[in-house]
């Protein structure tokens, strides 16, 4: 197994994108040929080209963003084959396996509630927002982590466009509800649709982005296409995927995991190594690709940017 050295070479410099895409096409072609032979020996889905329809659409006019970590990027293959997106199943391979059925066009995001200018955005309009590449750490509540080069725009741009009223204290995010496209919703694992929320100041923080892509390309279905939230100092489940509705509200909105297990998942769910999950420790994490666990950082290493948001709050109670 690999033991990684700190990055002295940017991983983007190691493999040219055109090269690895070509390589991937070659491997796909080769594995299709081998699939017939291997089908009897290998677990189903291991070689399946399903979910690989993505790979062609590059995003243009993307600026280099702020706050980039210089840690090595998690390989694209791992980002797109290992994640939680319960709308497609509870196994971490399910999102890739089952998200081919998600239709991301046409797609609209409805903005409503405590705003002066409620309106429905077409996804094409949102893609014209000032896009930036943000290389963020992602820490899952299950104690694994990745480094992901997201592409997105600051949520604050969208917020300013709809002019929140003085009553707008929180924002709720709603994921698509459609069991036809999202087979995981056919079982009552969570109370669908998936809902998440942020306090207004958290939503306005420059770290908070609406993600529309990664690794230079449009968002793969399995990672929350076509548009998702990315809040890097909170556990991954706070970053709602495949969003269709954004609602400005006065009261703290309900959130899916909090509804499912209130003693385990709080509204804030900030990455915090000193507050353990009731059933497992949050003190350390395994970075995907690493052998050794590493210490989890307060606010996932974004203390400088966000600690002030929680001044005076007891984060042991408001976990």
């Amino acid at each position: 197994m690999l033991i990684k050295r700190p990055a002295d070479i940017k991983s983007s410099e190691i493999t040219d994108k055109e090269l690895y895409l070509n390589r991937r096409r070659f491997i796909q072609g080769a594995s299709l040929g081998a699939a017939g032979l291997a089908a009897g020996l290998l677990a189903p889905g291991l070689l399946g080209p399903a979910g690989m329809a993505w790979g062609a659409t590059k995003l243009d006019n993307v600026a280099k963003g702020k706050f980039a970590t210089d840690e090595p990027w998690t390989p694209l293959k791992d980002i797109t084959s290992y994640n939680n997106f319960y709308e497609f199943g509870t196994d971490k391979g399910d999102p890739k396996r089952h998200s081919g059925s998600l239709k991301t066009r046409p797609w609209t995001v409805e903005v409503e509630g405590e705003v002066h200018k409620p309106r429905t955005f077409d996804i094409e309009e949102l893609l014209k927002m000032p896009l930036e590449e943000r290389v963020y750490r992602l820490r899952c509540v299950e104690a694994w982590s990745m480094v992901i080069p997201w592409i997105g725009f600051e949520l604050s741009h969208l917020i300013k466009a709809v002019e929140p009223t003085a009553n707008a204290k929180y924002i709720q995010f709603v994921t698509l509800l459609d069991p036809e496209q999202m087979p995981g919703q056919r079982r009552e694992i969570l109370d669908w649709p998936y809902v998440e929320g942020l306090r207004m100041d958290e939503a306005m923080n420059p770290l908070t982005i609406m993600g529309v892509g990664l690794y230079g390309e449009v968002m793969p279905n399995q990672n929350g296409a076509p548009i998702r939230l990315v809040v890097p100092w909170k556990y991954g489940f706070k970053s709602a995927k495949s969003i269709v509705k954004i609602r400005f509200v006065e009261q703290e909105p309900p959130t899916s995991w909090n509804l499912a297990a209130p003693n385990e998942y709080g509204f804030y769910s900030n990455v915090n190594p000193t507050v353990n999950h009731p059933r497992w420790s949050q003190a350390s994490e395994r970075r995907i690709g690493d052998f050794f666990r590493r210490k989890t950082l307060m606010f996932n290493g974004y203390e400088e940017q966000v600690a002030s948001l929680y001044k005076g709050m007891d984060l042991k109670k408001l976990y």
């Binding site: 293959k77 290992y82 391979g93 395994r286 995907i288």
Partner: peptide, 9 residues
């Protein structure tokens, strides 16, 4: 390398 992104898990 057939154990996925998180071999330990």
């Amino acid at each position: 390398g057939g154990l996925g992104a998180n071999p330990v898990e």
